[in-house]
């Protein structure tokens, strides 16, 4: 893994250039979200004191400042309200088409509207009103130091995809 122009960074992992989160439990307190994600679950934190469900997950209730939170599941299906499709000039990190959608998760969901990327969908196919579903996918693992060893930390992330492909 050569870093062009900077030979001293060969084989190094620069977290400052990583577009993905560091999900490993050694580096954050909400790693349960990623563990849940690996089981296909779409979760976030709910306050045990006032019941407020916040997105994204956190360690402090933004409403009552209680720190006792629990994990709760969010709906995995929604309807596309509005979307945009970037076909040409998609930036590094994404494949064409880069589709972003404003999704309705329904009146029963504590988080009613959700902005997400839509994957597994060719350009020109998505329509307003289409049903989409939560999808989990692998992202690159990164190395981390454990004592004198280097081990790989496996990662996943999520988006939505059309129900009818």
């Amino acid at each position: 893994m050569a870093v062009s122009g900077i030979p001293l960074l060969d084989d190094k992992y620069p977290v400052t250039m990583d577009m993905w989160p560091v999900e490993d439990e050694q580096f954050n307190r909400i790693y349960q979200f990623y563990d849940n994600l690996k089981e296909g679950k779409f979760t976030t934190t709910k306050c045990k004191s006032c019941g407020y469900v916040s997105w994204p997950p956190r360690v402090l209730c933004p409403e009552c400042y209680a720190e006792e939170l629990e994990w709760t599941e969010l709906p995995k299906r929604g309807k596309v309200l509005t979307f945009s499709e970037e076909v040409r000039g998609v930036p590094l990190g994404f494949e064409s088409p880069l589709i972003h959608a404003w999704i309705d998760l329904g009146q029963k969901s504590p988080i009613k509207k959700f902005l997400s990327r839509i994957i597994n969908c060719p350009a020109g196919k998505l329509k307003e009103g289409d049903e989409v579903q939560f999808v989990v996918f692998d992202i690159p693992a990164h190395p981390k130091e454990v004592k004198r060893e280097t081990v790989m930390s496996e990662r996943v992330f999520f988006a939505f995809e059309p129900v009818e492909k």
């Binding site: 577009m19 993905w20 989160p21 994404f94 997400s116 988006a159």
Partner: peptide, 8 residues
Amino acid sequence: DWDAPNGL
């Protein structure tokens, strides 16, 4: 952590 991975 939440938006960059999807370019939101």
